[in-house]
Amino acid sequence: MKIKTKLKLTGAALAGMLAATSASACELDRPIKMADSNWDALQVLNSIAATILRTGYDCEVEMVAGDMVPLFTAMQRDDVDIFMDVWMANNMEIWEKTEAAGAVDLGVFYSDATEGWYVPRYVVEGDPERGIDAMAPDLTSVDDLIAHKALFDDPEQPGMGRFLNCPIGWGCEQKNNVKLEAYGLSDDFTNFKPGSGAALDASFASAYKRGQPIVGYYWEPTWLMGLYDMVKLEEPACTDDNADACAFSETASHIVASGQFVEQAEATEEFFRNIETSSKEVSGMLSYLQENEGSDREDAAMNFLKTQADTWTQWVPADVADKVRSSL
């Protein structure tokens, strides 16, 4: 009994000494395990968070690769601590199960993820730098499209405009089918389905590089939206009568954590709760990858930490921010 107390005391003393020498050892005595699935946004965000955790909180971080559902299952067993960039609306079912197993929603991370019908900004406002005149200065909403159908001419169907829909089989494709009909555009615009995501990206990219008019569906945050200046066309607000054909709603992305993590962590949990960004900022991170040949997620994370200090320093206390900054 006595010996045990003694040991405990020495332990406490040792811990006190350690705390005195390095003021901020990680509050967890194990690595923080982050779900690292295969989309770019999540990977870059994970790298940013990991850098802050490593340098600012002296924690070890481990990336757990896997698919969405297996990672959620791992979280239910406390094998994964953090999952950033979870689009709640799309993953309700699996999240409810995970929450029942003790996981906690640490809050919204960006709330303005959105989708819609876009045209490049130079179509509406022109771009003096590139010598492009405004082609349709009065184009602000989907109702104005018919007046400008000649601008979006479909070469395969002379006399019709071309609306770029989603690839067949994507959920948005069917939504857009209904909308084209409801907005009275189906006689004047071909409902063009590009067949694959890569083809959709390529046609937006090619039109933008050449300064040509194009109208179609896209979503953000994406590298494309970060790289190209696009304008979203207004759509009718949703009422009870037009629930199928009205503006797309914005989707929120959340950060979630396992029950065990929330129990054990305090400062780092606070950090995750404080993270807040916007769809535009995430698009910017992704376009960095696209713009810089051969750059990887670590480079994109580093670039964000170096250039967007105003954003991320608000997520952490001042002393942590200083430590992170000095390590860059």
Partner: peptide, 19 residues
Amino acid sequence: ASMIGARGLGEHVLVGIQR
């Protein structure tokens, strides 16, 4: 070819597979 928006039988197959 239907994966880059060429309509025809290929698109029919693609719709079938993706749905």
